[in-house]
Amino acid sequence: MEFKTSDGRKEIEAHRDGLTFIHGATLVHMGNEIWLEMGGRKHKATAAKVGDTWWVHVLGHTLQFETIEAGASGADDDGGLTAPMPGKILDVLVSVGQNVKAGDALMVMEAMKMEHKIVAGHDGIVEAVNYNTGDQVIQGAELLSISDS
């Protein structure tokens, strides 16, 4: 399984034995509760999914892991085409069918009273524009899609 973290993409291989997940020297027992076993000690963890992101609290740390669907084309690997936080679309700068280059500004959104540009991660053709100026979007909303070219 693959996740996006603040350090970039991370892959994890774990095997499952009933309700227990095993990864190296670390075990996680699932059920209604999550228990982590590390170095012979047990720690309770809490997790919740918000949008595509798993938030995990364990041992006093809060971590975020964005899920990457298996077999995804990688078109949005840069994360630029989804809303980074909930907010409002201020401007749509491209239309469907338009050629764009990596780094081109595609949309401007406002979040936390600050403007944020949505920028193309690679060259391609705009395949879909999912929101219009003035629309409210939730965090992780797919704003546009660009073909691989």
């Binding site: 774990a14 699932m30 740390h61």
Partner: peptide, 20 residues
């Protein structure tokens, strides 16, 4: 690193069991 790793395992376990 051990906690980052543990977090990753928890996330993948949660994702695969549709935890919550």
């Amino acid at each position: 690193a051990a906690i980052a790793d543990a977090g990753l395992l928890i996330a993948s376990a949660c994702e695969s069991t549709n935890h919550g």
